[in-house]
Design a protein around this nucleic acid. Sequence first.
DNA 1: CCTACCGATCGGTAGG
DNA 2: CCTACCGATCGGTAGG
Lengths: 192, 192
Amino acid sequence: MATMSPRRVELIDAAARLFSERGYHGTSMQHLGEALGMQRGSLYAHIGAKEDLLYDVVADGAGRFLARGEAAMALPATASEKLTRLLIDHVTTATDHLAASTVFLNEWRYLSPEHRDEIQTKRDRYEEIVRLIVAKGIDTGEFRPDADVRFAATLFLSAANWVYTWYRPEGELAPEEIGRRFADLIVKGLAP
Amino acid sequence: MATMSPRRVELIDAAARLFSERGYHGTSMQHLGEALGMQRGSLYAHIGAKEDLLYDVVADGAGRFLARGEAAMALPATASEKLTRLLIDHVTTATDHLAASTVFLNEWRYLSPEHRDEIQTKRDRYEEIVRLIVAKGIDTGEFRPDADVRFAATLFLSAANWVYTWYRPEGELAPEEIGRRFADLIVKGLAP
DNA sequence: CCTACCGATCGGTAGG
DNA sequence: CCTACCGATCGGTAGG
């Protein structure tokens, strides 16, 4: 990562954009070459195979979300605050990196088995973080005792992960505001 | 539709399954031929082009969801009851027709522009139905007056449309129960 | 529904 | 980074 050439970075950017628009299988090396103004064969000076690009894009996306998750969990704050903070960060991250997030969420299943397993582990960890925050809120009495941890976490993830399908930068609501409103609704649903 | 041959029905079924597993662009006519035990060229006795199959699968999915939506709206019931009923029906439909629902939700963007527009209209109508139910609940005082109609509807749709990514038939919860728990959380979030 | 074929394009490589 | 190429496969058609 530290030694990644500028060309490789450009290539990953173009891959994120093209894969998000046309899908991984709908994007050819030819398309990628045109996006960078070079012959498709020349791309192999920078990568070993097409799947490397998918992995790079997906791993970037996974890494970003997970970093926000770990940060939210480490906050000295109530469960409601952590949940709200994380949902805002999640939405902001998804919208700031819309192409990469789209690829992360809907093309990751085309990764090679090894790469897929690695990403699955990160997804599992992220989900666990959300559950831990909800469970903590129940413990402290902040959320109602009969709340369903798994369903509350899944509702959180559903709202967060569906944003990329409808968010448009020209829309009237800022990403922060979107995250906040979802969090309000969910936190109210969890109130005692 | 009334005159659809058994072979064509088999073909659409196989397309739903394969497109949901490998994506539209990741599925070749060769794959489809193998699934039906025939040569790929022979498939053209039943369809005009590969895209016809995508359209058939997506249109089936869209039609099913929309029918549930219109039915829920027509119920003689409170807004909470309609919302709960629709969410249960949505989840049940998505899980009963998991492959077609998956294709409907994540391959529809590869339709031809005309077909895409037609499906978009149905999606818009479905979303409108959810909003109308929420708005009605606010009018009658069933939901709190400051509830955000668009966000409540989007939270509903997010939960409903994310199910296909994590639902597994061998899981412990029945689809009805999944829909009911989501509905409870959302309705509680809307309570005055 | 099959055989045999169409031109185009696929991901990837060699050699410079 | 390009030229020139590899074998394989793509969606689709003709003619039977």
